[in-house]
Simulated assay, not measured.
Amino acid sequence: MQPVAFHTAAQALDPHVLDAAAAWLVRLHDSAATDDDRRACERWRQSDPAHARAWARAEALVHKLGGLPPGLALPALGRPVRATRRATLAKTAALLALGPSLWLGWRATDAQGWLAEHRTANGEQRALRLPDGTRVTLNTASALDLRFDAAQRLLWLRAGEMLVETAPDPAATPRPLRVATREGVAQALGTRFTVRQDDGRTRIAVLEGAVRIVPAQGGEAVVLDAGRQTRFGAQQVDVPVALDAAGTAWTRGMLLADGMRLADVVAELARYRPGVLRCDPAVAELRVSGAFPATDTDRALGMLVSTYRVDAVMRLRGHWVTLVPRSDG
């Protein structure tokens, strides 16, 4: 099918037509879509030139973004199905209305999880209790979408970090509990574990039970047992190592450093603080050790200044902070 041009003002599409195109797009990207659904969509497309233009826009959206964005495909946990479907269709129709020139900008925004169902701000932590009894704690600056249906319990970590404490599935037919990130999927095997989405890598630490990790692009699956942690990309899981207490200290509101570069300590604290927190290159390699309150960055900065030869220069009423070498005077 040849795409139809739709960039001129004369070809502006009726919102009702975009709503219908969004409904077909969501329907055909559902795992339960049938050949009858696809034939019905084709009949709708051919019934009106405006329908053809709207469907061309829908196809261009999928091509441009590499598939229907996950945030539009994962219903919100605990919401009525009808309300969830309305919200999903509304998001999809709104995205179609943006047009191709704005889709990549939308994807850059959505990749940070700003449109996710559950989000935390800088410095915020939030506890969620799921209908099956599973508990999730979202760390600072995190974003999570959820999908519970007859076949699965899926947690899509879009950004940030979370602690998952699984519960037995109350459904008659037990459903696997999986955590998805950009790099792959981790299936819980009766467990308590943390997951962190970094830039191009996922970190997992297992406190209890075990987790089975499957990289997104077909790498070898790895079972990670309690007391172990690892990182993985889309193609491969790193060799697991012993659990490091520093990696799970955030669950107690702490940042643990043992000979850590000051630049790395500052980068971690910056995740918990609104505004800008940076480190002057002159002190970036300073080695830092200690336990710092991650959720009280003012206190953590005070501890650094009182212990090491650095000063905190604050501007814009504390919204811009730079750690610099302490002056001799």
Rank of each mutant, 00 (worst) to 15 (best):
A167Y: 15
A172Y: 10
A167K: 13
T173E: 13
Q152W: 03
L155N: 00
P176F: 08
D145Q: 07
P131T: 12
A159C: 07
P168G: 03
G133E: 03
L154F: 01
W156R: 09
D149A: 13
P131Y: 12
P170E: 08
N139Q: 06
D169F: 14
R182G: 08
T173I: 12
A171V: 01
D149W: 14
V136M: 02
P168E: 10
R153C: 08
L177H: 07
L177T: 07
L157D: 02
L157Q: 06
D169K: 15
R158V: 15
D149E: 12
E165V: 13
L154H: 01
V136L: 09
D145L: 10
T137G: 00
G160R: 02
L130M: 14
P170T: 11
V164Q: 04
R135P: 00
L144T: 13
T166P: 00
R175K: 10
L130F: 12
R153A: 08
A150M: 12
L177W: 04
G160L: 05
T140W: 09
L163D: 07
R135D: 07
R129S: 15
M162F: 13
L163Q: 07
T134Y: 05
Q152L: 10
P170I: 11
M162Q: 09
M162W: 03
V136I: 13
R178V: 13
W156Q: 09
R129A: 15
D169R: 14
Q152E: 12
T166M: 06
A171G: 05
E183F: 00
D149P: 11
A172E: 14
V179N: 04
L163S: 08
L128E: 06
R175H: 11
S142K: 06
V136Y: 02
R178M: 14
A141T: 11
V164P: 01
P131I: 12
Q152D: 02
V179P: 03
A171P: 01
T134Q: 02
R158F: 04
A150P: 08
E165A: 13
P168C: 05
E161H: 05
F148D: 00
R178Y: 02
L128F: 10
Q152G: 03
D145Y: 09
